[in-house]
Design a protein around this nucleic acid. Structure first.
Lengths: 199, 199
DNA sequence: TACAACCGTACGTTATCACATACGGATGAG
DNA sequence: CTCATCCGTATGTGATAACGTACGGTTGTA
């Protein structure tokens, strides 16, 4: 009976105006979008005016008609602020665990879309041992840029060697870690996008 | 009549098993989640087994019950691959327009969650002039890390000065640009997450 | 062996989503 | 002016989403 969830999470209500804005931005009429998406024009009109809550199936087709993924369409969430993390304000990870240390460069706000972190790997060191978060939340995705040295990405059983300047993108909810096979220290910048849910 | 959209975008079908996995991962019964989300247990069961397509309103409440945003829950999209862009394979932006040049470090795939780019600003130069994409898609968000030099972010009328190592996050659908007020060249790494769609 | 307590799912009813069609208003061509 | 065309929305009907309830199955306890 009692709902522990907030009154209504957010989005979803204002989705209609967002859809209308996107449609008009693409210079499409309701009937144009209806043909592109396979959803009837009256339905689109009702959704845009918030008179009805479409099913996921329909919402997904609307998103496709707008050349978006549904998750992208729904991402009209929080805040409009600018947040700065100064070099000296970075949150540090556990200091150098077996040759691996890192700093988090993005603010610790919820709803953050991407988390930026800089990792340092001593010669022979490995990320993802013991205390580290080994894999990320389901659905998240990671992009890593090697700044210096050489590292090997081990992801879901396969290996890829990366040199300074190389950039790799992969699904972060697969088991993965980085190794530094070289003799020099290696640094890499990691972007984890999506990430969700509590610790 | 003809739908220009792909048969069915993706996700949405496999969403059920994802929900079940998340629910069981939180050690909740259907009735537990029903109480947390305000959605009836039989409904949850049907959604988990893919027997019905919930409305956005219901899907959103389910997501909230799982302590997720709906956009996060839906982000179980495509691929499971690892994509590498070598230092030599980077796509270059228009070569040095009035002191500004950049490279894109992430692959040009759709559905990409974040785009990583490295920008170089000569002394006194400004991003976002003429040919550049001045602002990004609605809902997108940008994180910038200053690698060297000093830059000023002008966002929605306000200014912020950033030195090497500083990191800033802001809504990328607001009008914004970077300036290099110093005498040295400045470089910054930009992560644009979200927004997307057509060229 | 009961029996209580929980699990996930089948059932029938009601609310509403989603469609095809039709309407009134704006715009432009002849 | 007249008519054709497009726009977005009101209308009615069939499909189905969402509910409350009830059922069989499993688990642990007396």
């Amino acid at each position: 009976m009692t709902s522990l969830a907030p009154p209504v999470p957010s989005a979803v209500e204002s989705l209609g105006v967002r859809i209308r804005a996107l449609r008009e931005g693409m210079d499409l009429s309701l009937r144009d979008l209806a043909e592109r998406s396979g959803v009837s024009a009256p339905m689109l009109s009702q959704v845009e005016r918030g008179e009805t809550s479409p099913t996921l199936a329909v919402a997904s087709r609307i998103a496709a008609g707008l050349e978006l993924r549904l998750s992208q369409l729904l991402r009209l969430d929080e805040s409009g602020a600018v947040t700065i993390v100064r070099r000296t304000e970075r949150r540090k990870g556990p200091a150098r665990v077996r040759g691996h240390s890192y700093e988090i460069l993005t603010p610790p706000l919820p709803g953050q879309r991407a988390e930026l972190s800089r990792h340092t790997l001593a010669s022979g060191a490995v990320t993802g041992g013991a205390g580290d978060p080994p894999i990320h939340e389901p659905g998240s995705r990671e992009t890593a840029l090697v700044e210096s040295g050489t590292v090997v990405l081990v992801c879901d059983g396969s290996q890829w060697e990366l040199s300074a300047g190389d950039c790799v993108t992969f699904d972060a909810d697969l088991p993965h870690h980085f190794e530094n096979p070289g003799t020099d220290e290696a640094t890499l910048l990691a972007v984890v996008s999506a990430g969700l849910r509590r610790s």
